[in-house]
Design a binder for these strands. Structure first.
Lengths: 346, 346
DNA sequence: CCCAGCTCTAAAACCGTTTTAGTAAAGCGG
DNA sequence: CCGCTTTACTAAAACGGTTTTAGAGCTGGG
């Protein structure tokens, strides 16, 4: 009792396979009577075209892949992806596409790419020398890069990471902070030591700090999770000359340091200012609400999907200008409580 | 300049297609010399097996589908799915599977199901009379239900919704509350008026309230988002006899009423107690931290995937017992500030 | 010297569609 | 009544792999 195929329908209706195919895909090429009959028989038999066969024959699978360079469990711990998927999903649904999540399988992203039957890829946070990109090129599958560096072969959608980071650092400098901790990311994948966005954000932080003549910031490594943020806080010096402000690479890590700091008896922001990155929705409800660099995540997903779909239609598309970021000041940053500083403006 | 196929490799290496296929799938059936040569040529040519062709031939695609009864943008606004995917993803990665998100396409979940080339489905929140389930049965594709009712044809993994809801309601009753608002869900899909889980939770709430002789609760409808929760709060009576406690169907909605209430000048929990459902991670960092019914979401995803994979291997699997829920009391619930009540125990 | 047994490969069958290239019958103007 | 276009349908060839079948070429034992 195997699956009912187009041949079964054909013989049952007394027509050729072609006729059945036409009934579904080119109804106008069939006479009214036969059309009805074929459709009826198909319904009765519960016929459904085999998706893989269809994909093979039509050279299109109706799905786009989201290339994720890390394990799903770590990536989905960050609301960032959820937001991105909201943007991607909107476009997918509009164009009748499904979305395939493609994490490394058996440690290999390249292998996973090969296995995936998709019409195009959106790749997340791949550094431009990643071997996965070679594979994509070779297969010749349309691809759009998100959070990478610009590449000659694929359009890339990015945000103004450096500008956002600078704005965050300047904000803290203006509040009088001098002793900073920067939360840097651990190596993402074995081969690469840093993601392009992390590098750009770090550059932004350093530039702002340097040009203000602030002392060298301390670095603590933290992945993109609140647990990692909390651990990073623990690793920070607590004594004299301790950092009074921390710059994170993500909201999750920032939230982690906030709660660890509070658990350790520090007040945020009076004793420690912290700023995040991304402006994930949850950042608005934390205690205190998080000051962070906003990037238009949903919009980013929407744009990436839109470009990919154009590319799948054969159009040439250029990398758009980086989406702009903005600092949203909430309650997790302030002047230090116990320091005597010039009167705060505004 | 089309894709390089197995035939290209075969002629280039001077062997048959069989040999090439063996080189990848049955290396031990080839002589050492030829194996090396074929692999080398394949590498040089950049050969990659066509996934759809492979899927067709092997009757397996290497992906499982996550059936989502609503738009991606609304579903992914709730961290619940992220958590679930973490559990699913862990198993997927362990078994070299990718995960396909399947929302309704063109308004039809059935259509989307047909289009999806997957080895099995995990269906989320489908009511047992949903037409999508018929389609699944007809195609005969292994399926595991999550957050549905138990079904004769498919194993279902569920949690103790009713018990959790009762615990939440009793907690509030014990704190002395008598005037409740319950946030009910809007109709999920056109055909069905309520999801199975929502129904069970509502039952739990009502049962606890009824058996304590509390007055009829007011109902406000709210989707699963903080915006919806906020709107629901606005719709609540503010005057005398107003609800002093609200029972939500999700953490997101609960967070929405908290912030709307605070914006309206109420203190949570002194003036209004609110409890959520799910215990999404974010609930621990809200202001105040949310009292909520915890369900093991990641575990639920892991279990569902595990069952599905067993089923795909041809094993018969039974529906497991409902996963247990537990009330986690944080800071969003308390006795009313201005009411004189017996001394709080413990 | 013959034949069994082993290792390897070529060819064919199959997976389930769509598409191409027709064919037969009907319609039509002259 | 004849050639020509239309209409309604179909056989066969892709699509790109895997798996089975069958046979070819060697080796070694009797």
């Amino acid at each position: 009792m195997s699956r009912v195929t187009i041949a079964d329908v054909a013989t049952a209706a007394g027509v050729s396979k072609t006729a059945v195919s036409f009934a579904f895909n080119n109804p106008e090429r069939l006479g009214h009577a036969t059309l009805e009959r074929v459709l009826g028989v198909a319904e009765d038999l519960g016929y459904t075209p085999h998706p893989a066969a269809r994909a093979l024959s039509m050279r299109r699978s109706g799905t786009i892949g989201l290339l994720i360079p890390q394990r799903l469990s770590t990536v989905f711990a960050n609301p960032f992806v959820s937001e991105l998927i909201q943007g991607l999903g909107e476009q997918c649904e509009e164009h009748d596409l499904t979305l395939l999540l493609v994490p490394p399988l058996d440690g290999s992203l390249e292998g996973a790419i090969r296995q995936a039957s998709v019409d195009g890829f959106i790749s997340l946070g791949l550094s431009p020398d990643d071997r996965a990109l070679e594979v994509l090129d070779r297969i010749g599958i349309p691809t759009v890069l998100v959070d990478s560096d610009t590449s000659p072969s694929h359009p890339a959608v990015n945000i103004d990471d450096e500008g956002g980071a600078q704005a965050a650092a300047r904000h803290l400098l203006q509040l009088g902070h001098r002793h900073f901790a920067i939360l840097v990311l651990p190596p993402a994948r074995a081969q690469v030591d840093s993601t392009p966005t992390a590098t750009r954000r770090l550059n932004g932080y350093r530039k702002a700090l340097d040009s203000a003549g602030a002392p060298e910031p301390v670095a603590a490594v933290a992945g993109i999770s609140v647990a990692a943020g909390a651990r990073a806080f623990e690793s920070l010096s607590k004594g004299k000359g301790r950092p009074t402000a921390v710059l994170a690479m993500s909201d999750m890590a920032a939230i982690g340091v906030m709660s660890a700091a509070q658990a350790a008896g520090l007040r945020v922001p009076e004793d420690l200012s912290v700023v995040g990155f991304d402006d994930v929705p949850a950042s608005a409800w934390t205690n205190p609400p998080l000051t962070t660099v906003r990037q238009p995540i949903v919009e980013k997903g929407r744009l990436a999907a839109r470009l990919l779909i154009q590319r799948m239609k054969g159009m040439k598309v250029e990398s758009p200008a980086p989406l702009s970021t903005s600092l949203v000041v909430r309650k997790s940053t302030s002047r230090l409580a116990n320091v005597d500083l010039p009167i705060k403006r505004r």
